[in-house]
Design a protein around this nucleic acid. Structure first.
Lengths: 216, 216
DNA sequence: TAGATTGTTAATCGATTAACAATC
DNA sequence: TAGATTGTTAATCGATTAACAATC
């Protein structure tokens, strides 16, 4: 019965979701389209149209009920389940990711951590005991993991990606700056802040204080 | 003489830049609009139009000369200079960021690292000696830093942001999931992979294997 | 009541798609 | 030559902007 939503719309919905969740943590009850626009860089009229499009109404003069909004969007995006994640790399970066609450708060669980350094196998990062990378395929199958995170040195990234693809991982978060080559059907997201920096600095230096919303 | 380019265009140019730089590292000489499109999620026709718009031409049947493309885009975006960065937080995440080559490769130098933990002051992360957070304002002024990175626990993020604003930092990279409140003129970029994950998972589960380009 | 904010329309603008000639 | 890819036009689609009535 549910129709597939447009990419643009789902993309924006995820942004409203994260901002609203954070505002709730600050103790907020209602949120306006203007606020959502400010924090996401999306036009407030577009925000209202989007919420309308998913059948969610606000109150004139007040805004949208924050908690209900979160629930509505989670339902529509099919985000009521949790997802297990396989993390490769137990160095500083991997440890930071495994210990952070950002992912678990949104329904993502770092279920397994892998490394190839014998010194690190058996140690605990976050709540998880580090396993040898050779066990990746087996663990991924057992825990039904579709998401993999690469937090290794750049030199190992493609090799790890290959292992993940072979293990049937469908979404890869790549924290290195290597351009991973993967077959169609596997999605790679590169976590690299420099694009945003470059874009912002262009406006800072060239246009001196133009627009520059608090993006993503 | 130089006109300010459209936000959409500069945003896309930064993506072409990073992809092309990486392809050069792989030893590539030429790059096609189709490849740039695949790795950035941008339509190849748009890629060609954009490169045309900045006066950069390719060779039919071959593609665009990679090195020249990088130089052209860097020139247009005003990215020939380097920028000093103030990083706050010398834990796992801060250490990982300070040791990574991603930023220096693109002209961003982690010039100062700060923490408030006496145990960490004086230690070296990356190539930098950790200073006490109280020295932030002075160091930022001395090294002319306009970019700040927050890699602290979430509970300290807003406080650090306030210090950065006071020190005249103009662009903040926020690795926590706190929604920072900053005055107009200061841009915040939140590094949070969950929006991308949620978007991709929607298509993976609802629409089973629709589009899903290698974004960013 | 007055202020704030939603809901909605119309106009404009920017991006995507399709199609194809030009040319390396 | 044949294949690949650029350069460019026209049509469509989606997002932004402006403007304002409705209503809490």
């Amino acid at each position: 019965m549910r129709t597939t939503l447009q990419p643009g719309l789902t993309n924006r919905l995820t942004k409203y979701l994260r901002v609203t969740q954070q505002l709730i943590e600050e103790g907020r009850d209602a949120v306006s389209s203007k606020e959502l626009g400010d924090f996401t860089g999306i036009n407030p009229v577009q925000v209202r149209r989007d919420l309308n499009a998913i059948g969610f109404s606000g109150t004139r003069g007040v805004g949208y009920q924050a908690y209900d909004l979160v629930e509505a969007v989670r339902g529509i995006l099919g985000l009521r389940q949790t997802y297990n994640i396989a993390l490769v790399g137990a160095g500083n970066l991997g440890s930071a990711i495994a210990s952070s609450t950002i992912l678990p708060k949104r329904g993502f669980v770092i279920h397994d951590v892998f490394d190839n350094d014998p010194q690190k196998i058996g140690r605990t990062v976050g709540n998880v005991v580090v396993k040898h990378i050779d066990e990746l395929k087996k663990s991924v199958a057992e825990a039904d993991e579709v998401i993999g995170i690469i937090a290794t040195p750049a030199s190992a990234a493609q090799q790890v990606a290959d292992l993940m693809v072979e293990a049937n991982i469908r979404v890869i978060l790549n924290y290195t700056d290597v351009l991973l080559h993967v077959p169609p059907g596997v999605t790679v997201h590169r976590i690299d802040p420099t694009a945003q920096l470059m874009h912002t600095l262009y406006y800072l230096t060239q246009a001196e204080a133009e627009e520059a919303p608090q993006t993503t």
